[in-house]
Design a protein around this nucleic acid. Structure first.
Lengths: 351, 351
DNA sequence: GTTAGCACTCAAAGCGATCGAGTGCTAACA
DNA sequence: TGTTAGCACTCGATCGCTTTGAGTGCTAAC
């Protein structure tokens, strides 16, 4: 027995229906709602075949069929009606960034909000990371009380700042001179290289010991704490609206997973090289998510760093719609961050 | 009929028991578990009185009694065993800030995590706001591509930064000179005053028009967008563990309230002048929270700005424990932010 | 004032009957 | 050979009934 054209059409109808309603689909439903010109009995035979082929599951003998992971996979890979996003949705995404948004964090938070409300699933947006950035400028700004702000600018336009102690006697000009010297010495090096060179510099510029130690401290703490990635999550409560999360324990598990940010970031990041990914149920690799799917897309900044946008929903997700929205959002963010020269910022917490 | 010593003791027992178990308390439970030397019949009479006085409610006639809002109020105000916090809990709070934490955002996120896991309720922490800060320094840092970072430092140690466009021909020195001029002109003024003066300055320093416009733009956008307060929420999933949130709709409502950050901030901020507040059920003023209680405490920074820590839980909250933890955390944060001179930073997103 | 006893109430749990959506199989038909 | 009508069968969901038990209020006795 083999897959034929008609089986595919029936399978598609079943998946479409199940994604819509969330209740197991019976043969009669298919023969009535989607007019295939076939009686329910015939559909029944086909469904039985499809089950044998592993595309359908049956919760119990007197219930309809539900698509298996394999079916969703097929659906996403070949069956899915091309997710040409509604042009009004695209417009609404674009419109949402019209207003002046200055901080990358805000953009990311906003994006998560927007995606979750457009899709009605849970959205996660991760700030860019990637390529080792190179130092552009380093500058000290006095902030009083014997403290100074270290501003580190890299070629990817990403800025890191941190407060350090400096002696009371350091005024704005002294700090500026130190800044110039450092920038001259270190420009163009990657941050790891800068870190490696610092002990040397501290030797050479003895008189500014405290300041350099401070800068070194904050650089290396960043290095070790790895990539401080900003992450925004939106619409976690959306999931509770789906009947598959009527079970309280399940809901709680899901929510607490959404709260453990490190793990969540790791899951979403995934094998983040692809422009977009769809992971269905067990493919997520997360046991707690065996009945969720994760769709991700990426966006990039002018420095070539990559950020990730993800949507988490039930396996019966509206894949085409979600993909469309994510890709549109990815383009929008790429435009926004690719330094097309408007007054928007690309400051971010990442290093 | 009046409140007497014995009634109080019984009421206290009922509240204690209900807080612990969450199920309506019967007369027999009280007479057995808390040995008052009274039979269930006597307790029954007293409970009937307490109900008449408005301290107890009865879900239905053959169920036990549950404390009313009035009872909790009495409990919090006078009955509650003083919440001397367990010394090991205090230690664990202190320990949690031993590690080097450099950004205020991180401290706040961390604090929310810690409080929610110590209390098992939902925790909210708001960054400081208050007193209009005065300008200390303003400095421009070139970041390439004809862009510059504007760093604005105020007397409260709070820093704001933003990216603006400058002409390509602006090098580090030029920018530094503009910075000095501006700082000289504007130091000591509140940010509102600075905003008001800017148009004037733009007139006078024609040649640097673009730069000044940029600075003005980011200042005034901050002014209008109000106080950008950072907020961290932790342990929202904790609430689902309480039987009062077994109802899915209720749970969803609660969660989506937790997601509307503006509203949540407003609720927690409340009448934030007091060192701590306890709002019970309807006292929260939020219809969706009529069966929650909110406990808040404040902490402050060296600039005299006040931040708020809050816990949201069911009305049958372990008030004394929560209050103890919040107050301890408040002290800890105040120490941390009061500029006791260690290398920790107080950079924050607020202006 | 306290307590034992008792009738009463009512939500929750248990139980069986019924319903109905859906299946698989068979036999007839084109 | 593929399609369809028909029918027996399955089994979760629903409804209504009974039972159970926690808890009350009241009364009468101590």
């Amino acid at each position: 027995m083999d897959m034929d054209e008609r089986k595919l059409r029936i399978l598609q109808a079943i998946i479409d229906d199940y994604i819509l309603t969330g209740i197991p689909v019976g043969s009669r439903t298919i023969s009535k709602k989607y007019d295939m010109g076939l009686s329910s009995a015939t559909i029944r035979n086909e469904m039985s075949d499809l089950e044998e082929l592993g595309y359908l599951d049956q919760p119990h003998v007197s219930a309809g069929r539900i698509p298996s992971t394999k079916a969703y996979r097929l659906y996403v890979d070949t069956l899915m009606r091309n997710g040409r996003i509604q042009s009004d949705t695209a417009d609404s995404i674009r419109a949402l960034f019209q207003g002046r948004i200055s901080q990358m964090e805000d953009v990311i938070d906003h994006a998560a909000q927007v995606i979750s409300s457009l899709t009605n699933y849970t959205a996660v947006v991760l700030s860019p990371k990637g390529v080792q950035p190179r130092l552009e400028t380093i500058q000290l700004v006095p902030i009083g009380q014997g403290m100074a702000l270290v501003v580190i600018v890299t070629d990817s336009g990403i800025i890191r700042d941190n407060v350090i102690r400096v002696g009371r006697e350091m005024d704005q000009d002294t700090l500026y001179n130190i800044s110039r010297a450092l920038t001259g010495e270190l420009r163009g090096k990657t941050l790891t290289e800068v870190c490696a060179l610092m002990p040397n510099l501290i030797e050479r510029m003895r008189e500014n010991n405290e300041v350099l130690e401070g800068i070194y401290g904050c650089l290396s703490s960043d290095q070790q704490s790895g990539r401080r990635t900003h992450m925004a999550v939106g619409g976690t409560s959306n999931m509770l609206a789906y009947p598959e999360y009527n079970d309280m324990d399940k809901a709680r598990n899901f929510l607490s997973l959404m709260e453990t940010r490190d793990k969540l970031a790791e899951i979403i990041q995934g094998n983040g090289e692809m422009a977009f990914t769809v992971r269905i149920g067990p493919e997520t690799g997360v046991p707690e998510m065996s009945d969720c799917s994760i769709v991700t897309a990426t966006y990039s900044t002018r420095g070539g760093q990559q950020g990730t946008i993800g949507v988490i929903g039930p396996t019966r997700m509206r894949y085409s719609r979600v993909l469309g929205i994510l890709i549109a959002m990815g383009h929008e963010l790429t435009d926004l961050f690719s330094g097309d020269g408007d007054s928007r910022s690309m400051k971010g917490g990442t290093l």
